[in-house]
Design a protein around this nucleic acid. Sequence first.
DNA 1: AACGGAAATGAAAACCATTTTCATTTGTGC
DNA 2: GCACAAATGAAAATGGTTTTCATTTCCGTT
Lengths: 121, 121
Amino acid sequence: MSRSNPRVLSTLERAGGFASAQEIYRLMQREGESIGLTTVYRALQSLVNDKIVDVLRRDDGEAIYRLCGEAHHHHLVCKGCGDTVEIEGGAIEKWAKMMAEEHGFRDVGHTAEIFGLCAKC
Amino acid sequence: MSRSNPRVLSTLERAGGFASAQEIYRLMQREGESIGLTTVYRALQSLVNDKIVDVLRRDDGEAIYRLCGEAHHHHLVCKGCGDTVEIEGGAIEKWAKMMAEEHGFRDVGHTAEIFGLCAKC
DNA sequence: AACGGAAATGAAAACCATTTTCATTTGTGC
DNA sequence: GCACAAATGAAAATGGTTTTCATTTCCGTT
Ligand SMILES: [Mn+2]
Ligand SMILES: [Mn+2]
Ligand SMILES: [Zn+2]
Ligand SMILES: [Zn+2]
């Protein structure tokens, strides 16, 4: 199940920030790399599975991918330009743990993202 | 520009909570209402425009709509059986507001979900 | 009531990201 | 080299959403 194609990962690194599968594919083509769109999708899925990249959705529904730092973190994303800030989520961690406990849930994880307009937009 | 079809709005109300355009369309059909899918989409777009309805995206990319009036809340979802608990998110609201302020973002919304195993699973 | 232009409607086609299929290629252990 | 599994990618399918465009419904004016 390890389809994390290193060329796709390297391209995503080089892109810096978020990029969609289509964008990564076009980038690789423009740079003369031979790869199929299907493989790009599969590599990204695998990277998400392995928690090496984060995936979220643009407003238009297209999935965008980004390398995830080591530490657990959350995102503040600009709806205008796509700029992203990694933010600390201590409050969320506590909230999630408390809510889970309160309702008898165990083995919990969480997702939390903030969307808005950055100062430039 | 006022295409907020009242029958679509009423169906969304009746659905309670989130519903996709397709779901609303199917619901109306099942109840014998004559309407086109295109009209459902246009009505929802218009309602979002008028800020009567919120729109967000499911993980699979499908857009889901919800009346703005309903109280804002979050979900605690069981990965085993799918059971969902609606939970209060005051801590999240504060966190989101604080993070946005800190980074000069405005007009912010957020998503937050907790996933785990419920007591039964 | 009759006319006329504007808005609304919806069926069908277009669009487009993503997934699936499947034949082919590549890699790996023996 | 051989056999078998995994990876690849072109092409087709999928499915939500948007566009097109012909038709119908509204509405204000005569
Ligand atoms: Mn995180
Ligand atoms: Mn909230
Ligand atoms: Zn911005
Ligand atoms: Zn459960």
